[in-house]
Design a protein around this nucleic acid. Structure first.
Length: 283
DNA sequence: CTGATTTGACCGAA
DNA sequence: TTCGGTCAAATCAG
């Protein structure tokens, strides 16, 4: 059940992320329709997660097959898979001393960590990452970049991610997250549900949707439905240097109206992120 | 100065 | 050996 919860959270996070960008780049009448759809999906994910957590199904099906899970319509980003990475626990890290002057090395191979992959048109996930490597990958025209959490040493956070452009669509990125954040994201206080009444009614009204989840939207062909308004603006910002556009920078250029509309989407993203972090080491 | 990025060397696994 | 992930010195950015 943990994987289902995490998968559901990832799904909701993805929709929230899409919603965020949709609100940042409003695109006419279609935009509001897409936004409503996304909000519905976010609602559904929250409600579904809650129902999983509150239902006393002791199903600790630890060995569910890694499932491929593609998300509805808007193709801005999709959760592709979740899989446990099992690797040796042979803690054999021979530390060859820096005898020779260029003697480097000494790094641990990754142990068992949760990994999941999304496809997104942006690499900005509102987390603080620091690039530590880049490699050309065999049979790939684009290199793969390696990032770790900036608080790796401050707080021992083990989260890393790998980013690589898609061959078939260089405007999009394949982002593999490895491990959950164990650090506190000090950038923003996660007081997400201060207005609980709003959320209560929020979920209350979505119960109908629970019984009839919009499965019909979850098709199999991610690259096909590319007419999403979200991807419209493959603007220059994620072209060359995708890492420097923080949301703070974006927001500073927005009017108050847009800002007030935009923030909730980001808070939803944070909520999902926080939940993912929680369940990351709880399960 | 500090902190992030670049980039080739190093390392383990296959 | 090759390949992909990591390290870290050099470099860049503020």
């Amino acid at each position: 059940m943990n994987k289902r919860v995490i998968t559901e959270l990832l799904l909701g996070l993805d929709h929230a992320t899409q919603l965020k960008f949709l609100l940042q780049n409003p695109v006419g009448p279609d935009g509001s329709v897409a936004a409503k759809e996304l909000v519905t999906n976010v609602q559904r994910s929250f409600a579904q997660t809650l129902s999983m957590l509150t239902s006393s199904q002791p199903a600790r099906g630890e060995d569910e097959v890694a499932q491929n899970l593609l998300i509805s319509g808007e193709d801005a980003s999709q959760v592709a898979s979740i899989d446990p990475r099992s690797e040796d626990s042979t803690e054999s890290r021979k530390r060859s001393l820096p005898l020779a002057k260029d003697r480097r090395g000494s790094y641990k191979r990754r142990k068992t960590e949760q990994t999941w992959t999304i496809v997104s048109h942006t690499v900005d996930d509102n987390r603080a990452w620091r690039k530590y490597g880049q490699k050309d990958i065999l049979n790939s025209q684009f290199p793969r970049s390696y990032f770790r959490c900036t608080r790796k040493y401050e707080q021992g956070c083990k989260a890393t991610k790998q980013v690589q452009r898609l061959e078939e669509n260089p405007d999009m990125y394949n982002i593999t997250y490895i491990g959950f954040h164990t650090c506190k994201d000090s950038l923003k206080a996660p007081q997400m549900v201060t207005c609980s009444e709003t959320w209560d009614s929020f979920l209350e009204n979505s119960h109908e949707d629970l019984n009839v989840p919009n499965e019909e939207q979850q098709h199999e062909c991610p690259p096909m439905r590319s007419q999403s308004p979200i991807v419209k603006q493959e603007c220059l910002n994620d072209e060359t240097d995708p890492s420097d556009l923080t949301d703070a920078n974006l927001w500073s250029d927005l009017k108050d109206f847009e800002l007030s509309n935009d923030k909730p989407a980001l808070k939803i993203s944070d909520a999902f992120m926080n939940l993912l972090s929680e369940f990351g080491h709880e399960f």
